[in-house]
Write a protein that binds this DNA or RNA. Structure first.
Lengths: 154, 154
DNA sequence: TGGTACTAGTTGCTTTTGTAACTAACAAGG
DNA sequence: CCTTGTTAGTTACAAAAGCAACTAGTACCA
């Protein structure tokens, strides 16, 4: 045992990223779970629709990088909560335009504000330089091409 | 709609971290899933035991920040694969010392090497300064105290 | 000895996710 | 029309995770 002394698990990026991501996600959950009974995917769908406007489920999948079954279920849940409505497009009835209701948009506004506050507060702990580098590096990692060419979106 | 123009979801740290973490974890999975049929938690338990030596499940929970039910099931799975053995301690038979078998250690050695290669390759894309800041920031985020004082380990 | 309380670890049940198969709508060619 | 192929979205089933209740071993104290 105990070979590879120099390699600490705590320096392994996938592990470190997961720890950091879980740490923050669990904290922020309190906002959408407690007040609105939303799941993480529902919050993301809500956020995308609020931020980028009405779109189809397919566009949402592409934009947010969420699998279509997760989107499908999140949309159904948000619809049940009366936070969004669907409208099949006339030219092609396979496409459903998803739009937030007034209540959905209100929830988005509040959660979006909470998110900004959360982010600002978190970032107070970091210098300007650290913030820039951190966001930049994370974006680059998130945008890495998938290893096997499969985008998992089939 | 479309208020809060300045706040892009892509800059929200919990989201960004999750995206980056998922991206890397999915790639590295190929190593332990394909070759050893391991789950993520099993890999983490294996890694901790290989890296830090034999310990109890409880110590593993604390060290790795994994919930005891997940550890319990991962240990059972690794035992079934003959990668570790348990030995109740004589002074207190509630404590079981978990130790890797020869096969378990061999798997750890190989996966640990794969992890180092993975990490090195990933980090080639970043400057020395970026690497230092990135790891440092992530560690600080991962170590933030839990919001509600509950460590989720009960 | 018996009672209460605490810790280690497991198990049962429910919720959530992943995978793959499915339906429905369209498009193009024969 | 009718087949074949493709895309949007849903659903069924299986794998995994979360939570809470449980067993078992220990400690303390009356």
């Amino acid at each position: 045992m105990m070979e590879n002394e120099e390699f600490d698990l705590r320096d392994f990026m996938p592990y470190l990223l997961n720890q950091a991501a879980e740490r923050l996600s669990v904290d922020f959950q309190a906002n959408y779970r407690g007040r609105y009974g939303m799941l993480r995917t529902e919050w993301r769908v809500l956020f995308h629709l609020g931020r980028y406007g009405a779109m189809t489920a397919r566009a949402l999948c592409d934009l947010a990088g969420i699998h279509k079954t997760k989107v499908s279920r999140a949309v159904a849940a948000l619809e049940a909560k009366r936070f969004l409505t669907r409208a099949p497009q006339e030219e092609d009835r396979r496409h459903e335009t998803l739009s937030l209701t007034r209540a959905g948009d209100a929830a988005y506004q509040e959660l979006s504000a909470a998110a900004q506050t959360f982010d600002r507060k978190l970032m107070e702990a970091f210098s300007e330089e650290e913030q820039v580098i951190l966001r930049n590096c994370l974006r680059r990692i998130a945008q890495l091409p998938k290893a096997d060419g499969d985008d998992g979106m089939a």
